[in-house]
């Protein structure tokens, strides 16, 4: 094992060190999120052409696709943090899983709703039971299951650990979502962004899409850092309360 990596990992297990890092990072990511989402929305709504087949409804893509990407990326990050929490007992990693979960659930929900609104004019149905939609719906329920489990224990630490194990088991759904459009003959279109031959989207649409993806990402980082900080504060208040009540 490399000697440099683990100390770095553990440096930010210290809440104070994390607090200093967060104070430095947060203004930048917040500004970046506002900038990218603002610019992205402008390009997505006004400065990009309507699709030659889909017309104006293609603009739903600029919300649907970033939300879909984030729904999977957040779960992937949660799984990585769960591994760190279980192997190294990294305190902050456990908390990250909990802080990220409601955001991931929200992204998944937005993805499903936006997709449904897009499906009605394009496919003629709010919902079809194809593999991509079904596996994304399962991902939503995995998020909900995690959120219900993590709060169901009297000892918060035990809830975090049980949740981390659940997140790792649920990872089996991620490749199924990603490759569902290749493995099955789905109504949902196959990948056009992350293909071996590069993106197959026209530059005029790729730009707003990329801006929105970046904006969603910066938004996620900002909110997750805020949630982590408030979780650490809540923990300090709890410790302080039990300490004073014992006196």
């Amino acid at each position: 094992m490399t000697t440099a990596r683990i100390p770095l990992l553990h440096r930010y297990a210290n809440p104070a060190a994390f607090g200093r890092l967060a104070a430095k990072v947060l203004p930048w990511t917040t500004a970046l999120a506002i900038l990218l989402l603002g610019l992205g929305s402008y390009f997505a709504l006004f400065a990009s052409p309507p699709d030659y087949q889909q017309g104006e409804s293609v603009r739903i893509m600029y919300v649907h696709v970033p939300a879909a990407i984030m729904s999977e990326v957040v779960y992937g990050m949660m799984a990585a943090a769960a591994v760190a929490g279980i192997i190294w007992k990294h305190a902050l990693a456990d908390l990250f899983v909990k802080a990220a979960a409601p955001l991931g659930a929200a992204f998944t929900f937005v993805c499903l709703v936006a997709g449904s609104l897009w499906g009605k004019p394009m496919w003629g149905a709010w919902w079809v039971w194809d593999a991509r939609l079904t596996s994304e719906l399962i991902l939503f329920f995995l998020y909900l299951g995690y959120l219900a489990l993590v709060d169901a224990f009297d000892d918060p630490q035990r809830g975090l650990r049980a949740g981390a194990i659940l997140v790792l088991v649920g990872v089996v759904d991620l490749p199924i979502i990603k490759f569902s459009v290749d493995w099955w003959n789905t109504l949902h279109q196959p990948a056009s962004l992350m293909t071996l031959s590069g993106p197959k989207v026209d530059p005029s649409m790729l730009l707003p899409l990329m801006l929105m993806i970046g904006g969603f990402m910066a938004f996620f980082v900002s909110v997750v850092v805020l949630r982590l900080e408030s979780e650490l504060l809540a923990r300090r208040i709890r410790a302080w309360r039990t300490a004073t009540s014992e006196e």
Partner: peptide, 16 residues
């Protein structure tokens, strides 16, 4: 050891 184990169990297991 979780509170309201039964309903929670169904929520976790059915998606899997």
């Amino acid at each position: 050891g979780a509170r309201r184990g039964g309903a929670l169990l169904a929520l976790l297991v059915l998606p899997l």
